[in-house]
């Protein structure tokens, strides 16, 4: 086996693995090199976040526009504060917008649904660091069943 042939085969091996990596990065993983794109952060307080997790998607009408970047508990009010990292492409949400924690399908993952509100002259646009006031918490199945039974009891 000549040195030249070995070098060619090693070169082919490395090219093949680069191709494999590119395929995994572009075709398999989401949005290509998403980490490098511009984002801005909004905050939302919920009473209960249910099964929401860091990196859960944020959707507007079913289109993913961002991801949950962190979930923390407010030390004063003891309510969860969710940081929403939203792609800078979608930057003009009015402050009347509302967010809700929804579930995809009956057993699916929970995600944050963002519903853009109405716009008129008095309404400002949400910017980096703002907090969305209008929130709806996750529906917790146990509470729902509990309420249902309680109501029936009445």
């Amino acid at each position: 086996m000549t040195a030249r042939k070995i070098e060619i085969l090693v070169g082919a091996f490395i090219v093949l693995s680069c191709a494999a990596f590119l395929m995994l990065a572009l075709k398999v993983a989401n949005t290509g090199f998403s980490g490098s794109s511009q984002t801005y952060t909004l905050y939302a307080k919920f009473d209960n976040i249910g099964g929401l997790k860091v990196r859960s998607p944020i959707k507007v009408g079913g289109v993913t526009v961002g991801r949950v970047s962190s979930i923390e508990l407010d030390r004063v009010s003891y309510t969860p504060v969710v940081a929403l990292e939203i792609n800078a492409e979608y930057s003009n949400f009015p402050e009347t917008s509302s967010v809700a924690i929804l579930t995809s399908g009956l057993l699916g993952e929970q995600y944050v649904g963002l519903l853009p509100g109405f716009v008129d002259d008095t309404v400002l646009m949400l910017a980096n660091g703002d907090t969305i006031e209008d929130t709806r918490s996750a529906i917790v199945l146990e509470e729902l069943i509990g309420q249902f039974l309680f109501n029936r009891g009445n």
Partner: peptide, 15 residues
């Protein structure tokens, strides 16, 4: 097959 994959696989987290 491919789009559900893209929606759930993260370059940093998984790859």
């Amino acid at each position: 097959y491919w789009s559900a994959m893209q929606a759930n696989v993260d370059l940093y987290q998984d790859v």
